[in-house]
Design a protein around this nucleic acid. Structure first.
Length: 691
DNA sequence: TTTAAATGTCATGGT
DNA sequence: GTACCATGACATTTA
């Protein structure tokens, strides 16, 4: 029995971590292998042997008819609880699972929430009590391992948060009616946070909002009753859970409108839609009661992508949490979120597809509370002007906000990618939302194929042959779900982890870059920096497009689209860098070609030199042969020559000399031309030496 | 961990 | 003046 701290909790508040994990799971690619499809007979609590040799348990299991008889299971990975040095790095299991062809469902990491306490009474503690946002309402990441009943060690900071939430989970199971007091006993300051996070403020200033909320609750209760009837046909364990959860929630008066398992199944139902455009609001619908998360109302016929499209942006949430008024005056906190709720309740949402019994009114205060909690945990003393930057970066990167703040202060960022997210976000909101206005007819672009939509950097890689200059329709793609383009959302600029990664890269801090890169999924990791930057700012054009298009088209494109200065600056930088990159590549290629050509020249000249040397040698040999022949001839001639008395002619006194007409005469050496005389003397000396 | 090659980026000058 | 290109120098990434 040992207490293991969730590895992600170091240095961060629960809320921070919850958001981070959710974003990470959606944006990035961490541990998505935790969620697999299992055969129908897989039982809740079944022990699983993981690929890394560790064991885990099915922490939640839901029959899912749409998946063809397979059930969906949530697998609690030991890595959730501790960072095992021997464990495979993030992403490896995922790749292995993919390689095996195992059905794989990317989803939100469930260990950020309370899932279910399985195998109750199991002495080995096969409890899958996960760190939860529900537990976060008690002020910390809930993390029960090897037995929920084990008391967590005392400590401060992260461990304390874990401790408190763990105890809350335990106590709520025992006595759900009095969770707060016990949390207070266990977690110290957690009581206040719990109170804050537990629900909508009861301030008189928000009675109106409360009334709205109560109306929504009534509707949701009706929906829940209907859902309970549906659940009657489900397995006993599931039905039992549902019944219990209902009663407990009603007793507690903390109806959360829909459970974590709802959320999880919704997530699983349309995983593809979750990978993009999910904001903090997506993870907002978390139960305020742990039991909510533990039970499974199982509303299958819901479209989570629609539900999550009612997003409270991360930026907005951070603004809320960074607002001192909100932080210090609980009574004034709910007003703005409630307004957002009203705004975000899209009239176009199909009631069949909305979360059953869910009115976002019930969720958003939780988001607000989470944001406030985050600010209380980390950001209270930070300059409000940099809260957005630090929060966003810290949320997405896992850095401590103070560390991010230090980055912002210590380094600058060129290329116009200012981290002034308060401006950026606003401007980008303007940009994104204004596209439909500037460009006008949204429907006119309805013929765009998905490939076209992928052409934008903010989405996926384009197919170059299909590149088209993006219009407003493509922008909506950046916000994730095409099905919601018609909904007038406040698509606040969500600074994605990839954006933070690229931004942080610009700080030229290799260590940080590597640290951040761990949070990138494969897709983002394959993107170039500019592509990630463009994606971060939702540039509606592909990098390739930006770089390659003619200057006239480029300028007209910039003028046709309502882009912020930041976006224009980035686009121009991308173009400049891209062209320079190509130029540098060409330059290096040319330089390499020149070097190669010079090397070829050197080789050919060396070969030619060798050839000439050989020719020279052959010439020398020929000359020597000729000289020898001449010498022999010379001696032969003199041996046959006789003077008038018949005596032999000495070659020392006479020499043979060729005349102009080709005849040969014998000339006394005294009468020879000096040059010829020397040659004859030389030749005579040679002859004498040879003789 | 070190190192060299490859690549990206910036500054500058020329067209 | 602007855009583009070429290239040296330096930084960063990759193998």
């Amino acid at each position: 029995m040992k207490y293991l701290k969730p590895w992600w909790s170091d240095g961060g508040s629960l809320l921070h971590l919850t958001i981070l994990l959710s974003l990470a799971e959606l944006r990035l690619d961490l541990d998505l292998d935790l969620y697999l499809l299992f055969p129908p007979r897989t039982l809740l609590g079944d022990e699983l042997l993981l690929r890394n040799g560790q064991t885990s348990h099915i922490s939640a299991l839901s029959p899912f008819p749409a998946s063809g008889g397979w059930g969906r299971a949530e697998l609690l990975h030991p890595k959730c609880w501790e960072r095992d040095p021997a464990a495979p790095p993030e992403g490896r299991l995922l790749r292995e699972v993919r390689a095996l062809g195992v059905p794989f469902i990317p989803s939100i990491r469930v260990d950020a929430w309370l899932v279910h306490s399985v195998a109750a009474g199991d002495a080995d503690g096969a409890h899958a009590l996960l760190g939860t946002a529900a537990a976060s309402s008690a002020g910390g990441v809930g993390a029960g391992v090897d037995g929920v009943s084990q008391a967590a060690p005392a400590g401060g900071g992260g461990p304390r948060a874990v401790q408190s939430s763990l105890l809350v989970a335990e106590e709520e199971e025992k006595a759900p009616a009095e969770p707060t007091a016990q949390v207070s006993d266990a977690g110290g300051h957690a009581s206040e946070e719990n109170e804050v996070l537990r629900g909508v403020s009861h301030s008189p200033q928000h009675e109106e909002n409360e009334q709205r909320s109560s109306t929504q609750k009534e509707k949701s209760l009706q929906q829940k009753n209907e859902d309970e009837n549906k659940v009657a046909d489900k397995p006993a364990w599931e039905a039992e859970k549902t019944t219990e959860s209902r009663s407990e929630r009603y007793q507690n008066g903390t109806d959360a409108f829909f459970s974590l398992e709802d959320l999880f199944q919704l997530l699983s139902s349309q995983p593809e839609n979750l990978l993009e455009g999910v904001s903090l609001g997506d993870i907002a619908p978390l139960p305020r009661s742990i039991n909510d998360g533990m039970n499974s109302p199982t509303h299958y016929n819901v479209n989570f992508s629609q539900a999550i499209s009612h997003d409270v942006s991360l930026h907005e949430a951070m603004l809320l949490c960074s607002d001192n008024t909100f932080r210090r005056d609980p009574a004034a906190r709910t007003s703005q979120p409630q307004e957002q709720i009203l705004q975000l309740n899209s009239p176009t949402t199909n009631t069949e597809q909305t979360l059953p019994g869910t009115n976002l009114t019930g969720f958003l205060p939780f988001v607000d509370n989470q944001m406030r909690n985050l600010s209380q945990d980390h950001l209270y003393d930070l300059d409000i002007n940099i809260l957005d930057e630090t929060n966003l970066m810290s949320l997405a990167t896992g850095f401590d906000p103070m560390e991010v703040s230090w980055l912002l202060e210590e380094t600058g960022y060129d290329s116009g990618l200012s981290l002034d997210s308060s401006n950026n976000s606003t401007s980008v909101i303007k940009s994104n939302s204004s596209h439909s206005i500037c460009e006008g007819d949204t429907s006119s672009s309805s013929d765009l194929s998905h490939h076209d939509l992928q052409g934008a950097v903010g989405g996926y890689y384009p197919e170059p042959s299909k590149l088209r200059y993006m219009n407003d329709r493509s922008d909506s793609h950046f916000h994730g779900d095409l099905a919601f383009q018609h909904v007038s959302h406040n698509h606040t600029y969500h600074l994605q982890p990839s954006a933070l990664e690229s931004t942080s890269e610009s700080f030229s801090m290799p260590g940080k870059s590597q640290k951040i890169s761990r949070y990138l999924n494969d897709t983002d990791r394959n993107l170039s920096r500019d592509e990630r930057r463009a994606k971060a700012l939702h540039i509606p054009f592909s990098v390739d497009e930006i770089i390659r298009m003619p200057v006239d088209s480029f300028n007209s494109m910039l003028s046709r689209h309502c882009l912020t200065d930041l976006q224009v600056s980035l686009i121009r930088d991308i173009r400049r860098r891209g062209k320079n990159k190509v130029a540098a590549q060409n330059c290096r290629k040319r330089k390499l070609d020149v070097i190669l050509n010079l090397e070829d020249d050197v080789c050919s000249l060396q070969a030619k030199k060798e050839t000439l040397k050989r020719e020279q040698s052959q010439c020398h040999k020929a000359i020597n042969i000729m000289k020898q022949k001449l010498h022999h001839l010379y001696r032969d001639v003199f041996s046959r020559l006789r003077d008038d008395q018949g005596r032999p002619v000495s070659p020392n006194q006479y020499a043979l000399q060729c005349t102009h007409d080709g005849s040969v005469v014998i000339v006394p050496k005294e009468l020879m031309i000096p040059g010829q005389k020397k040659e004859n003397q030389k030749g005579n000396r040679k002859n004498e030496r040879k003789n």
